[in-house]
Structures are given as structure tokens and as C-alpha cells.
Write a protein that binds this DNA or RNA. Sequence first.
DNA 1: TCAGAATCTTACAAAATTGTAAGACAAAAG
DNA 2: CTTTTGTCTTACAATTTTGTAAGATTCTGA
Lengths: 224, 224
Amino acid sequence: MPEILLIEDDKTLAKNLVRYLQTEGYTVHTADGQKKGLQLFGTYHPDCVLLDVSLSDGNGFSVCSAIRQSSDVPVIFLTASADENCTVAGFEMGADDYISKPFRPRELIARIQNVLRRHTSATKLLRCQNVIIDPSRGVVLKNENEIFLSALEYRLLLIFFTNVGKLLTREQLADELWTFSGEFVGDNTLNVYMKRLRDKIEDDPQNPSILKTVRGMGYKAVQS
Amino acid sequence: MPEILLIEDDKTLAKNLVRYLQTEGYTVHTADGQKKGLQLFGTYHPDCVLLDVSLSDGNGFSVCSAIRQSSDVPVIFLTASADENCTVAGFEMGADDYISKPFRPRELIARIQNVLRRHTSATKLLRCQNVIIDPSRGVVLKNENEIFLSALEYRLLLIFFTNVGKLLTREQLADELWTFSGEFVGDNTLNVYMKRLRDKIEDDPQNPSILKTVRGMGYKAVQS
DNA sequence: TCAGAATCTTACAAAATTGTAAGACAAAAG
DNA sequence: CTTTTGTCTTACAATTTTGTAAGATTCTGA
């Protein structure tokens, strides 16, 4: 299912790679140079780019940085040798991985799967006990069912779930919620929001198992 | 500033690595075995783990999968040789990268920086023209200033910003916003939300430059 | 046990959100 | 040009969110 763009001017290698990648189920587009590569990139928006560093019409670094202008698609460099400078320069250009020729097909597949896994899991879920935030949809689930939070409740829960296990003081929480607008909210307001949030996400709001009070300090979300 | 946990039972190598990493500004904790490694992991919550695959008291894979139970911290395997099976198995265990001994210190640093960059940029911003969503805070900025969106407006904008350039049909949008609750909303409701959203994020809502109408089809967010 | 402090709970108005309806407007087709 | 279709705009009530106040409850230390 994933689409791969291969930018490689060694025609024999390219042909072999295409065939191998296709047998693994990938759709492959091939370009034999920089210009064609960027053009195809614009056309197909591939899920992963395999990029030869030593193209005849310019080096791969410039292609990579051009791609990075508009996209954070995973890029894997194909290097002629395990040249350290190459590696370092490639990473600095925003490459996600590199592999030195000659390489074993199996290893290339492993690296492709690896960067794809990492990239797609960018839509990471935040989880604490039976409650899940899906930040990429702005949605909260409790036991698989969606629950409604208001904008402020959502942001408050987000703070806790990105800091599970950490103590958050009242001041930190209030700052994060209200500082932006320079608003002054009363001292008790946070208490009220904590209660509202607990009422919505806790199984037993009177005995919270997720959002714990740390008396005199603040609150923290606990994993179990 | 970042903390690194090194799990390595070759004392000489460990000592050299620690010294080198420290000169590069990292704080390093060292463990000479599986048990100690997991213990230190729990204590320090490092930003990155360097893990020897061949520990005397058990292989590194089990350590990696133990770590993955509770954390998605980046793990880099140190392998005795460029053994393909090792590589593949490591990635399947959730490793983020691997490096074969002997390796050049500069390359290790490059790989560490690479995984750290990737990992911290998990708090990725979604950007389209002069409007930015910070999903990790649930906040929307226009020209550096925070603007308020209601819960539904936020989710609607999130759909557009995770699909910049793509046409989204009315049906797709309505499904994504209202299907969960099985609600039936009127045919015109989405129009009204589009207007409200444009009024808040567009410089000239009558001539939207971000959220474009595609007559007969739906809408799309455009990069420029 | 008691007093003081911290947190929780309830109740309340002001403000904002939500969904609908009715008409205005704009683009495409006849 | 006129009609039709699709989208935009405005206005409106029901509901929800938001912040505050006042009192209840719980915890801690003397």
C-alpha cells in the first residue's frame, strides 16, 4: 500500500530495487535525476523517499532539503560508501535514515518499515488508564467511547496526559490555561475545573484514580 | 542537556563512551547488565537509551521490549556486527536505530541527535499560511497570537490542517465531526461552521485564502 | 480534639456555543 | 437573460461553557 519514490541514476540498481520493492507490496515511482525526482515527488506525494546521494545532475542533499521545504516525508539516503561525513551531513539535511551500498534487500525493507512506522505513529495517542486522547482528532475516549470535553477541559486534560506521573502545581496549570489571554481568574476556578474534569473522566469522581490531588502542591495524573 | 542511559557490559568501551558523550554535553548513566539497566531506566527516565544487544545476563532485545512497555523513549542498539538478523529483530522490537561496532564516535553522536530530534519533534506543529495549530497544547495561533476556537471549530480546523492540499467533501467533514454521536445535523450546518471558522482565521473572510471552496465538491485548505 | 488551611462541592448568572431556518448571493446551465 | 443549484450570510432560541461565590468537607498540626 505505501508509495515509494526512488531517486537513483544507476539504472541497473534501480531496476532491481523496483522489482524487489514491488514484490514486497510497495508501489514504486522511479526518477533518474534531481529534476525528475522533485517533479515526481510533487505529483505522487509518496510515503517514503529513497535518495541516492550521488546523482549525476547534482547531489542528493539539495533534493532532500528541497523536499523538506514542503514536507516531512521520511527520506532514506543511499550512500556509495559508509562515509561518515556523508552520514552526518545527511542527517543534518533532515534525512531519517541512511543505508550504505552494497546493502541487503532485507535490510532496506526493515529500514523502510521502520521509518514508516515512526512516521505514521506521529498521530500518537495519549493514554492514561482507561482514558485516551487522540490529539490528531481532538477527541477523548473513555473505555472506547467518545466523551465530550469543553475546550478548556480538553486543554487541561492534555496538560496532564503529556505529563503523566509529574506533579503539576496549581500555578503551572493556571498559567498554562489562562496566561495567554492575560486573564485573571479567581483562586478557586481551577478547583472547579478539576471537579468537572473528574466528573467526566473518572469512574468514581469522589475517589479519583487518574487525577490525584497532592495536597499543598497541586495535582498529578498517575498511570495506575 | 539530554540524559542518556548506556547499557553495556564491556567496561572499557563503556568507559570510553561515557567520556566521549560527556564531552559532547550529555549526562550519561551506565549499567553493566539487564537488571541494573531497567532499574536505572526507572530511576532516571533518560531521553535516549544506548543498548548493547549482547549482554552477559540476557540479550538486549528483552530489555528493549521491557522498556517499550512503559515508554517510547528512543532506543539505539549497539550490535557486535552488521548482522542482518539482528537489525531486523531489533527494529521489530521497537528500536529506533542501530549501529554496528566498531563505530566512529561522530557517527554515534549523529545518530543520537537524529533520534532525539525526531522524538522531541513529536510535538509537531500544524501550519498553513499564517495559522498554526499546536496539537500538544490544543491551541491555535494566528500571526503569533492565540485565537479562540470552540471544540467543534477546533476539530474542523484540525481536519483541514492534517489534510492540507487535499479536497475534503462535505460528507467526509460531516462524518468526521458528527458521526461519532450518531447525530443527524442539517444540511446547512457545515456551511455555518465554515463561515464561523473563516471569520476567525482568515484575514479577509469574504475572500478566504486558506479554506477554499471547491464548488460542487467540498473544501480544501491550501498552502499558499 | 480543635483550629486553620486546603480542597471540594453546589449553585448561579453572564457569555459563548450549537444547530436551524430563511433569505441573499453567486456560479453554471439552459 | 432566466433558472437552477450550490454556497454564504444573518438571525434566532436552546443548550453548554465559563467564572464566581458561598458553604461543606477533608486534612494537618498543635
